[in-house]
Design a protein around this nucleic acid. Structure first.
Length: 176
DNA sequence: GAATTGTCACCAG
DNA sequence: CTGGTGACAATTC
């Protein structure tokens, strides 16, 4: 019996996104890719699985994802089926501990993980299949500038901007 | 901002 | 082990 991967499309202020789930939980959340290539990516990632459209079954999930994108503080209780090397999973777990509005550099994150090379973390983060749910957008370069983002630097900036607003600030940020 | 160079842990074979 | 690789980091103009 082949494993079944279901995918569906949703819409948000950041554009269209695709969600894919296995029996265990979410395996992918893609932002703004074209429908064709995103679906193909799934088949490549799960060559032995049956990739089917599950638009109806995933309505609930789509709804939650949309909300996460619009409201950074909303935490969906969605099961994540993380697939990757042990190291990648470690990095992803680490990212999810980052509070809203908080950013960290690749180098610092690497240090926390016990490795010494930021590039190492970079690779793991770049392999993150779960946009937003794993807040890889909170990882930036050491000088504070935005470096790169698998789903587009603009989305990264946008997500960070939203989180800054959502973050409870003791003082107002003043004119900006 | 763009280009250049140094660096090394991780992954696949 | 060997080889390839990077969403880095620090420097320079």
């Amino acid at each position: 019996m082949r494993e079944v991967i279901r995918f569906a499309w949703g819409n948000s202020s950041l554009g269209e996104f695709m969600v894919a789930t296995s029996d265990k939980g979410l395996v992918a959340l893609e932002l703004g890719s074209s429908r064709g290539s995103a679906e193909e990516a799934l088949r490549i990632r799960f060559p032995d699985a049956q990739v089917v459209s599950g638009q109806l079954e995933l309505v609930d999930i789509l709804d939650k994802i949309t909300r996460v994108i619009e409201e950074p503080r909303f935490v969906p209780e969605l099961p994540l089926d993380m697939r990757g090397t042990a190291y990648e999973i470690e990095v992803w777990s680490m990212l999810r501990l980052l509070p809203i509005g908080e950013t960290i550099s690749y180098g610092t994150l690497a240090a926390k993980l016990g490795t010494r090379d930021a590039r190492d973390v970079t690779k793991a983060i770049a392999s993150n299949p779960l946009a937003v749910l794993v807040p890889c957008h909170r990882v930036i370069k050491k000088d504070g500038s935005i470096s790169g983002y698998r789903w587009g630097v603009k989305r990264k900036r946008e997500l960070l901007a939203r989180e800054r607003r959502a973050k409870p600030l003791p003082t107002s940020e003043g004119a900006g």
